[in-house]
Design a protein around this nucleic acid. Structure first.
Lengths: 156, 156
DNA sequence: GGTCAACGTTGATACTCCCAACATAGCATA
DNA sequence: TATGCTATGTTGGGAGTATCAACGTTGACC
């Protein structure tokens, strides 16, 4: 049922100048992940996941440390933490040793929420990598890790 | 000159749950590319680059075809084409064979603009991949290409 | 001729990132 | 002690991108 002329989908490739660009490829992969994620959970759950995962792995953290760990701006952390605190997924209290800091800790509810998001995340990850073998997935992860680590030292 | 306690930067890693996620890695690589790009040109030049590259490789295209080639929404293409046309980087005329379509073609000015952006883009690409060997860069490109091609067929 | 689909445009909404303030709080040195 | 600099958390504005919905125009199919 195509009233309009259809072109061969094989030829529907992006231009070579874009296919050669790592940053363009990365943005498209990221977008695919975003679209798949949106089908399983609200998009804000991705930011929640990052904060909850950091707290679960490293224990209590200040909001500034959370931002440095995750590469997110302070104002983003502020919003995410406020939302998670409202839903009782974490505790927030002023550090008595440094009263500028808000020390944030995971609650039992937050841990449950984290594992729930983890489950959906695993689904998305498998769907995203469906075309790659296990060895290729490891290679891809290693290469991206190496690329990112070569830039991690200089940006907050 | 650090009045505050400093933590070892080696330990400043994102949580393992994020490091394992391809979509998170991809978004961070994309963000790095965006930041580097912003230091060489206005960010809108990235969208311009995509449209100009498609026209240069495939010749005249309708706006809808441009959107399908580049994975961009029609309204985005509309804005980009309007901007490029305003700056005389492309011609836009109604297709006489199908008067719904706007056929877009590259001008000499547009070709020059494309090559100018290409130059900055090469710089960013090299800076982004500075930590990888030539073989690793080829591997990474091949893996991302394979990942993307396994999803290309089903989304516009 | 009527129905449906494609096209281009405009608008609204959401998410992310960046930058700039601001008030509070701690450190460092004079 | 007093001054200045930095860190922290919060709030707000702005830009770029993506999604969805409408609308009028145009073409194809029945």
């Amino acid at each position: 049922m195509e009233p309009e002329p259809t072109y061969s989908d094989d030829g529907m490739q992006p231009p070579a100048r874009l296919r050669a660009l790592t940053s363009w490829q990365a943005s498209k992969v990221s977008l695919l992940g975003t679209r798949m994620t949106a089908q399983h959970m609200p998009l804000t759950a991705r930011a929640d996941f990052a904060v909850l995962a950091a707290l679960e792995e490293y224990g209590e953290l200040s909001q500034a440390d959370l931002g440095r760990r995750l590469g997110l701006d302070r104002n983003e952390i502020s919003g995410i933490v406020t939302r998670l605190h409202r839903d009782h997924h974490l505790d927030r209290h002023v550090d008595p040793d440094n009263r500028r800091r808000n020390v944030v800790t995971l609650t039992a509810s937050g841990k449950r929420y984290l594992e729930e998001i983890q489950h959906h995340t695993d689904t998305v990850q498998n769907e995203l990598l469906v075309g790659l073998t296990a060895a290729e997935r490891r290679q891809l992860n290693a290469l991206l890790t190496k690329l990112l680590s070569s830039h991690k030292t200089q940006s907050a």
